[in-house]
Amino acid sequence: TIDEIIKALEQAVKDNKPIQVGNYTVTSADEAEKLAKKLKKEY
């Protein structure tokens, strides 16, 4: 679900690790936030 994706992003940001979500690779908190907002609009 979208919530699980967002939790995974938040965890990756805390661990400061890049995370791959679908076609996106998120490497920073800023990118994670942008991706989360984008995904919320889509779903």
Rank of each mutant, 00 (worst) to 15 (best):
Asn16His: 06
Ile2His: 05
Leu39Lys: 00
Val21Ile: 15
Tyr43Lys: 09
Val13Ile: 14
Glu31Tyr: 02
Ile2Val: 09
Thr1Phe: 12
Ala12Ile: 10
Glu31Gln: 08
Tyr43Pro: 05
Thr27Arg: 03
Asp3Met: 12
Asp3Gly: 09
Glu10Trp: 11
Ile19Asn: 01
Ser28Lys: 00
Lys37Ala: 14
Gln20Val: 14
Thr27Ala: 13
Lys38Tyr: 13
Ile6Pro: 00
Lys40Leu: 14
Ala36Val: 15
Leu9Ala: 03
Ala36Leu: 15
Glu42Val: 07
Glu31Val: 04
Lys38Asp: 09
Val13Gly: 05
Thr27Phe: 11
Asp3Lys: 11
Lys14Pro: 01
Lys7Cys: 08
Pro18Arg: 05
Lys37Met: 09
Val13Tyr: 08
Lys14Asn: 06
Ser28Trp: 03
Ile5Ala: 02
Lys7His: 11
Asn16Arg: 08
Lys37Val: 10
Ile6Ser: 01
Tyr24Ser: 11
Thr25Lys: 04
Glu31Pro: 00
Ile5Thr: 02
Ala36Thr: 07
Ala8Trp: 11
Ala12Trp: 15
Ala36Tyr: 12
Lys17Phe: 15
Asn23Gly: 15
Glu4Asn: 07
Lys40Phe: 08
Ala36Met: 15
Lys7Pro: 01
Val21Met: 05
Glu10Gln: 10
Gln11Gly: 05
Tyr24Cys: 15
Leu9Pro: 00
Leu35His: 01
Lys38Leu: 12
Lys34Phe: 12
Glu33Ser: 09
Thr25Gly: 11
Lys37Glu: 14
Val13Thr: 06
Val26Tyr: 03
Ala32Glu: 04
Ser28Arg: 00
Leu9Ile: 08
Thr25Ile: 15
Lys41Leu: 12
Asn23Cys: 15
Lys17Tyr: 15
Lys14Ala: 08
Lys7Gly: 06
Glu42Leu: 13
Ala8Arg: 11
Lys17Gly: 04
Thr1Lys: 10
Ile5Leu: 11
Ala36Gly: 04
Leu9Lys: 00
Glu33Ile: 12
Val13Leu: 07
Ser28Ala: 05
Tyr43Asp: 08
Lys38Cys: 15
Ser28Asn: 13
Gln20Ile: 14
Gly22Cys: 15
Asn16Gly: 15
Thr27Val: 10
Asn16Phe: 15
Ser28Tyr: 03
Leu9Arg: 00
Glu42Ala: 08
Ile2Glu: 02
Lys14Cys: 09
Asp15Gly: 06
Glu4Trp: 12
Leu39Tyr: 03
Thr1Cys: 15
Glu42Cys: 15
Lys17Met: 14
Leu9Met: 06
Ala12Asn: 03
Ala8Gln: 10
Asp3Ile: 12
Asn23Gln: 12
Asn23Ser: 11
